[in-house]
Design a protein around this nucleic acid. Structure first.
Lengths: 228, 228
DNA sequence: ATTACATCTGAGGGGAATCTGAGCATCACG
DNA sequence: CGTGATGCTCAGATTCCCCTCAGATGTAAT
């Protein structure tokens, strides 16, 4: 599995990389927040997990985490010397999947990496095998995030695609609103806005097939399955 | 979201339940490993996360975690006083999603619960057979909230479906009115309204099989088991 | 800085889902 | 039968949920 290590201290990074490599990880090293974000372009990232050290020179580590979260769904483990509870809560609420305080035990870190990546293994869209979904005239290519309707490409934004991809994982089954929000937005965040509806509306209009996404009143949404 | 709290100390459980409830969780309390496992029967589980205290009277907490993992994909957060690294690693490698050491900060616990449930909002891969109930010519598909009678789809509203799904969990057994109301309406009100009757009536008419839902005078309702 | 776009927020409205209450039907029991 | 208790039907009234829209905020590229 590929792992992105964000850490400004070269010595620490080298030592940790060695350990991780010995346990089967393919480590990429980023020295700054900017470098990390550049590596995480959604179309080509393929990282299974991000190890994010908060003591970065160029940006606030929390900001970086927030930006990562907006860009991809790749799980993030924060690593930092800041042990106080407030920092932990802040980090976790920004969408981090775990928060480890230095100094940490390497074995535990490894166990936590495994725990986190175990969870998101399902969502992995890196294997180019059966990662295409066909629904009537709509074709969804998960790996390259492309959608075509009647053969012509439709440009979807990041959230639009994530939303569609989620629903397309199981056509016909109903996804609850909260479920969709936590999967697509991945941040504990109140539901007072009309955000989800807006994105659904935009999707419906772009796919030129409003009936494809069915709203299940009081519950959520689902894709209508092609006649079975 | 539903949460299963496994904790043998009633005082601790009560206090924690209150906090969790105040943050929007619907808490079920299990006092032993056995009780927890009984609550996690696939058909009625629906828990978003399990909080597992390791200091249980009847079984070793780690074993319970392993058994839970074999039974469902519901995320597990271990809570324990055992702080040593070896225990943490052991727990995480057994399939726990997070490991929190007592005494913990409640806010952090909440943040971790959110982080964990966020990550795994959907992954219990469901065999279609398990989540489908057949009653004569009526077929109920739980995941996609669809009901068909003689092969043709019947549109049910939210309450109608919830009500039918509840009764269908145990065909033949009688559900008491109050029981139905607290399950479907998730509130223990209901003084004097004719609400339940109205929904039952509507269900009967939509299913075109009035005899399917039998009213048990003075008690409640039940589905008649397919008599054949 | 400017621009283009993506995303989020809040108000307003419509329509389905749900609730309510009164009167009617049915049941259990004498 | 007669009677009270319980469940049923029906038609508004009401609530709730979702959609649309228009602008505010945020983000990435020039």
């Amino acid at each position: 599995m590929r792992l992105l290590l964000v850490e400004d201290d070269n010595h620490v990074a080298a030592a940790l990389s060695a350990v991780l490599a010995r346990h089967g990880f393919e480590v990429t090293h980023a020295r700054s927040g900017e470098e990390a974000l550049r590596a995480l372009v959604p179309e080509s990232d393929g990282f299974g997990v991000v190890l994010l050290d908060l003591g970065l020179p160029d940006q606030d580590g929390y900001e970086v985490c927030g930006k990562i979260r907006k860009r991809t769904a790749t799980p993030v483990i924060m690593v930092t010397a800041r042990a106080d509870v407030r920092s932990r809560i802040h980090g976790l609420n920004l969408g981090a999947d775990d928060y480890v305080v230095k100094p940490y035990d390497t074995g535990e870190l490894l166990a936590r990496i495994h725990a986190v990546s175990r969870r998101s293994a399902h969502d992995d869209v890196s294997a180019p095998g059966e990662n295409m979904v066909l629904l009537g005239s709509v074709r969804i290519e998960l790996p390259n995030r492309q959608v075509t309707v009647d053969g012509s490409v439709v440009q979807l934004t990041r959230k639009e695609f994530d939303l569609l991809a989620l629903l397309a994982q199981r056509p016909g089954v109903v996804f609850r609103r909260e479920q969709i929000i936590s999967e697509v937005w991945r941040t504990s965040w109140e539901g007072t806005g009309r955000t989800l509806e807006v994105h659904v509306a935009s999707l419906r209009s772009k796919l030129r097939m409003p009936a494809l996404i069915e709203t299940v009143r009081g519950v959520g949404y689902r894709l209508v399955a092609p006649a079975s």
